[in-house]
């Protein structure tokens, strides 16, 4: 699904419409934060972001502006201190931050996140969720995120699109989350609306699993 939006896979039927125009093939306006960070291991953190910036803003920004833009995006995810380090020298959570910085640096119309925190421990995941909420509040850009974590989905999103079981998975139910922003994890933990949405989502997941057994 995300790969089709990103253009990495071609849809067998249907298409992808962005800003009123159909898009085909991958492109930086639909930047992807990959599941396993996908940083180039031979480049430093800075160079990884720089590769994207130099490609996307070639001819539109001067070298100094590019440098500033790279630093700015690394600062957004709090990674300025490690800009000279190689990916293997930093933790999984930090790699994913750099992945987000690289995607943001492409100035995408929509940022696609493919289970970005799946491989991280709970604490790091929580911190990165805060980072994403913070970035979203400051930049206000559209984010499409794939997740298997119902708490994460309710906490972060305005709309949860739930998929039926594959193969040939389709959109099952769309759940609008009307929780006020900014959202506080601890406050939400006791919020009845939060629990309602969470229960709604889980009920769908649970019934979707039951259906094949009944058939």
């Amino acid at each position: 699904m995300l790969n089709i939006i990103a253009g990495l896979l071609t849809a067998s039927t249907g298409g992808v419409i962005l800003d009123g125009r159909e898009v085909s093939g991958p492109g930086p306006e639909r930047a992807v934060v990959f599941q396993n960070h996908s940083l180039l291991p031979w480049l430093s953190v800075y160079e990884n972001v720089a590769l994207a910036v130099r490609q996307v803003f070639r001819g539109r920004k001067t070298r100094a502006e590019m440098h500033e833009w790279i630093e700015h995006n690394l600062a957004l995810v709090n990674m300025s201190h490690a800009s000279h380090k190689r990916p293997h020298e930093i933790s999984g959570g930090m790699k994913q931050r750099v992945g987000i910085a690289r995607a943001l640096a492409m100035e995408p119309k929509v940022m696609l996140m493919d289970e970005p925190f799946g491989a991280l421990d709970a604490l790091t995941r929580a911190t990165l969720q805060e980072t994403v909420m913070d970035l979203h509040a400051r930049l206000g850009n559209t984010i499409v995120m794939i997740t298997h974590d119902m708490d994460e989905a309710v906490l972060l999103s305005d709309r949860i699109v739930m998929m039926t079981n594959g193969p040939a998975a389709t959109v099952g139910e769309i759940l609008s989350v009307d929780l006020p922003r900014p959202r506080e994890r601890m406050a939400l933990a006791e919020n009845p609306a939060f629990h309602h949405y969470r229960a709604e989502g889980l009920r769908f997941l649970y019934e979707r699993h039951r259906r094949p057994a009944a058939a």
Binding site: A6, P28, L40, Q55
Partner: peptide
């Protein structure tokens, strides 16, 4: 494959793709 996808999302040209992604890897 993931690194190739990075290159595709960035729309790197063939020569840049070879120079920046394929050869170092």
């Amino acid at each position: 494959k993931d690194l190739v996808n990075v290159s595709r999302v960035l729309r790197l040209g063939w020569a840049t793709h070879v120079r920046k992604i394929v050869l170092p890897s």
